[in-house]
């Protein structure tokens, strides 16, 4: 009964119907729902972290340096996950750190996707010579291992979180170009595009109104994947000292600061890594769910 209603709604009104259909398939996927729940918590902490955290993330408790977490000997409830070598509360730093990773993900995906989609559309609609030039340039960027290129870009721009984000966005962008161009190429030959052209639609209208909405599914999946890649790469750059600078509680930078204490205080190393892993895992779970829900091939089987 419910299904009949929703398919009827899909016929009457296209867009909410599509959304509802998507949600129907996404909800089926337990992993994706777990990922979504974790991502919701992550987003909440990113937005309200400083108000949720028990302590100030940069406050140093001089009489409680390298205190173990609460369940170990010497741990106290004031510092549930212990303190770092400077006596800063681990839990507060992790909570406040969520916003940096979140911001990295949002910024990188927005910049890389917008740029990549526009360049991809241009490549897909332009004459062959321009298309070849654009794709060769993308090949050139893709020839460099992404982390290495990002490292060198940050070395040029100067180490900071903003520059790390710009570098990662540049490195991830060619994937969007390729993806967009490939779907534009296959969509362009279909009848609905020809009829829109015959009806007098200009190139801009064909690009953004006619073709683009039909190419979005793989791009959305790619957006989820590059959100997690961006978080991982930014943390790696922070770990190498080329991302956020101390005392910023960015998770990768925290790991770099904790490195020399790994054999003495396991908690300063373990928790930031778990934070990165859980966040990236949640986003990848969502990405897998998105892919399955948006891929019509899998739906029918």
């Amino acid at each position: 009964m419910d299904d009949a209603l929703s398919s009827e709604a899909a016929m009457v009104n296209d867009r909410p119907g599509r959304l509802r259909e998507f949600w129907f398939y996404f909800r089926e996927n337990r992993g994706a729902m777990i990922g979504l729940a974790i991502f919701a918590v992550f987003t909440f902490l990113a937005l309200f972290g400083p108000w949720v955290a028990p302590h100030d993330a940069t406050a140093q408790f001089r009489d409680a340096t390298l205190q173990p977490p609460v369940w170990q000997d010497g741990g106290t409830w004031t510092h549930i996950l212990g303190t770092d070598p400077l006596g800063r509360d681990m839990l507060s730093r992790l909570i406040v750190g969520a916003r940096f990773s979140f911001f990295v993900g949002v910024f990188v995906v927005c910049i890389a996707a917008t740029g990549g989609i526009i360049i991809g559309l241009i490549a897909g609609f332009s004459p062959k010579w321009l298309d070849s030039i654009i794709m060769r340039i993308m090949d050139i960027v893709l020839a460099f291992p992404s982390l290495l290129l990002a490292l060198v870009l940050v070395a040029i721009l100067g180490p900071s979180l903003t520059n790390a984000m710009i570098a990662i966005a540049i490195v991830l962008q060619p994937h969007y170009v390729r993806l967009t161009r490939a779907s534009v190429m296959s969509e362009r030959q279909k009848d609905y595009v020809t009829s829109a052209r015959v009806a007098g639609a200009g190139t801009m209208r064909l690009m953004f109104v006619t073709v683009l909405p039909n190419c979005l599914a793989p791009i959305i999946v790619q957006a989820a994947l590059s959100f997690s890649t961006a978080i991982l790469d930014a943390a790696a750059l922070g770990f190498l000292g080329m991302g956020a600078q101390p005392p910023t509680p960015e998770w990768g930078t925290m790991l770099a600061e904790a490195r020399e204490f790994i054999l003495r205080a396991w908690w300063v190393v373990t928790f930031p890594g778990i934070a990165i892993l859980v966040t990236v895992l949640a986003i990848n779970l969502m990405g897998d769910g998105l892919r399955d829900a948006l891929d019509p091939k899998l739906k029918r089987s």
Binding site: S228, L232, R259, L277
Partner: peptide
Amino acid sequence: STALVGYSMPIFWWALLLIIVFSG
């Protein structure tokens, strides 16, 4: 599930963990 965890792994942290357990 294990593969997805591996795929999401920040390998620099993974290295530190292995050092703590196997070297430390």
